[in-house]
Design a protein around this nucleic acid. Structure first.
Lengths: 208, 208
DNA sequence: GTCTATATTTTGATAGAC
DNA sequence: GTCTATCAAAATATAGAC
């Protein structure tokens, strides 16, 4: 009697093997993609192995600390990528208003117009988030300060700039939550449009 | 010879047994707390069993569909709790501006001033989020519409009200992400203060 | 460095006594 | 309804050949 082996549970739309990593940096990039999609708790070593095309032993060769070390490497990698590809617009030459427009444009591309999640949000939601608390705190703060700096340059008073900058980081994370949960990138896109409209709005006089 | 059994790995600060559920609704409330803290992927049956004081078999008696059914029950329960304890302020008697103030006050309490997470965000970040996509979409939309309704009543033009309402839902989720990831409730509290200040701000004339 | 194979623990889930 | 005992599968991780 031939038994039909039960097909392994593989979520639809997840490629068995995206490609194969030949170097550690390549592996980190593929791990990043997987952690962003599945979250830290949701990504298993089997998933990560498939995504990188590396056997588990190879993964442990590159990351002796296992999953936690992989996530830390991914976090470093992603933060660096965001700095180079997005936040570099802050210190670019040109008028502040144009740099802000460019920053927002790159942000939108970085998150694939709302179809990709953010590793910061995923790690923040993990049950082991204490493992990542320090870098997360540092990165959220750095992003806020970078945006605030640009707003100040563009003429926004410093306290307002600080508030709007934190609001931008918060809105980014929140919009990605909604777009991830609903499977609809529209909330992210509308949020980006709102930022473009409001970030440089003149400051209202305080009531007296 | 007496053997010393190895103590099971239990994350610090997680109570072995919060209390004991005698009824299904009580169980759901305790499950909700656990899913909010650990996320869907991060909460194991062992965790959920400890949190409710029920054995796994009892859990399966109440929730034959296992973890997914538990999460759906928790989602229903939490949405109902939010409706009764928070959003009921929208339809209360009194001037709209006061109702809005009350809505925000209750929101802040509901999330324990930023020390508690939201089940919507946690499920949105889960690897099995497709399981919850429809209710999540429905709930995010309902929340947005409720807030928009109140803003319109308070005199905000409908398109602006809609945008500000979605921005409120997004900011709520985003602030909870930051507060969860950094372990610091301050971002949530500052965000709430910003909402109080800005939600009823006069609409800027569009440039022409 | 990568593989196959395996060890060990934990997972989600069930059986069956009470 | 709840428990103890148990299952098969999947989890993280390691051993050792090549």
């Amino acid at each position: 009697m031939s038994r039909i082996p039960p097909s392994p549970r593989r979520p639809a739309g997840r490629p068995r093997r995206a490609s194969a990593a030949a170097t550690r940096p390549q592996a980190v990039a593929l791990l990043a993609k997987t952690f962003r999609r599945d979250g830290y708790d949701g990504a298993s070593l089997a998933t990560l192995s498939q995504a990188t095309g590396l056997g588990k032993s190879s993964l442990y060769h590159y990351f002796p600390g296992g999953k936690v070390e992989m996530a830390h490497a991914v976090l470093d990698f992603s933060v660096d990528a965001a700095r180079r590809n997005v936040f570099s617009a802050v210190a670019a030459p040109g008028p502040p208003a144009e740099r802000l427009r460019e920053l927002l444009r790159r942000m939108e591309l970085f998150f694939e117009r709302g179809t990709s999640a953010c590793i910061l949000g995923r790690l923040s939601a993990s049950v082991d988030r204490d493992q990542f608390r320090e870098p997360l705190t540092r990165v959220f703060k750095a992003q806020t300060e970078a945006i605030a700096r640009l707003l100040v340059e563009a003429g926004v008073p410093r306290p307002t700039a600080r508030a709007r900058a934190e609001d931008t980081v918060i809105s980014l994370q929140g919009a990605l939550v909604l777009s991830s949960g609903t499977g609809d990138p529209a909330p992210f896109q509308r949020m980006m449009a709102r930022l473009r409209r409001d970030l440089l709005a003149p400051v209202k006089r305080t009531r007296r």
